[in-house]
C-alpha cells in the first residue's frame, strides 16, 4: 500500500497567500492552532479512559498474546461500552446484559457482561470451536484470575470489580498461541 500521496498537489491547490509560508510562526498562528485544537477536541472528544486503557494494554503486551479483534454490530449495539459507563455513572440506568464478540483466526470468544451483587460484574463467556481453554482475567493492580472452560467452551467469572480488564485465552493442551482481547471497560 502506497502511503505517500503526491506531495505537490496541495501545494498548488492552496492558491494565493497573503501570509508567507516560509515565515516563522507568530502569536496569531499559535492562537489559531490552539483554538483549532479545542474545536477538534470538542467535535469528537477523545474517550476519557482511552489513555488509561492504552497504558494497560501496553503493560499486557509483554504476555506475547496475539490481540483479538472486537466485533461490533451496527447501530443498536454500537454503544456497549458507553452504555456500561453510563450505567456506572447513573445507578438508575436499566441493568441489562452487554455482549461483545472477539475473533482471532478461527477462534471466536463471546462474552456477556451482566450486573452482579455489590455493583460488580458477572462475565459469562463462550469460545468456539470448543476446546479446553484457560481464560485469564487481567486487571490493573490486581492478581490474575484464571478459570478453565468446560468441554463446550463455556467459562465464567462470577463477580468482577468494574474497571479496565483484558482476557487472555490459552489452550490447555498448549496448542496454538495465546490470544488476548483488547482492554475493555467492564
Amino acid at each position: 500500500m502506497d502511503l505517500t500521496p503526491e506531495p505537490n498537489k496541495d501545494e498548488e491547490a492552496v492558491g494565493d497567500l497573503s501570509f508567507d509560508p516560509k515565515g516563522m510562526l507568530d502569536a496569531d498562528d499559535g492562537a489559531v492552532l490552539t483554538r483549532l485544537a479545542q474545536l477538534v477536541d470538542a467535535m469528537d472528544p477523545v474517550p476519557s479512559d482511552l489513555v488509561e486503557r492504552s497504558l494497560f494494554a501496553v503493560t499486557l503486551a509483554g504476555l506475547e498474546a496475539d490481540l483479538m479483534e472486537a466485533v461490533y454490530l451496527d447501530a443498536p449495539l454500537a454503544g456497549v461500552r458507553g452504555a456500561a459507563a453510563a450505567a456506572r455513572a447513573d445507578d438508575t440506568a436499566p441493568a441489562e446484559a452487554k455482549t461483545i464478540t472477539f475473533t482471532h483466526d478461527s477462534l471466536t470468544v463471546m462474552i456477556s457482561l451482566s450486573p452482579s451483587a455489590g455493583g460488580r460484574v458477572r462475565i459469562d463467556g463462550w469460545a468456539a470451536p470448543a476446546a479446553g481453554l484457560d481464560v485469564e482475567l487481567h486487571r490493573p493492580g490486581a492478581d490474575v484470575v484464571t478459570v478453565a472452560s468446560d468441554e463446550d467452551g463455556r467459562f465464567s467469572f462470577d463477580s468482577v470489580e468494574r474497571g479496565r480488564a483484558s482476557l487472555v485465552v490459552r489452550r490447555t493442551d498448549g496448542g496454538g498461541g495465546a490470544v488476548s482481547t483488547p482492554v475493555i471497560e467492564l
Partner: peptide, 19 residues
Amino acid sequence: GMPMGSIGSTRGRCLAKLR
C-alpha cells in the same frame, strides 16, 4: 505525506492559507 521542508517552526502553506 506532505513534507514541509526541514525547518520545523515555519508556518507552512496550509497554515498560511488558513490565515
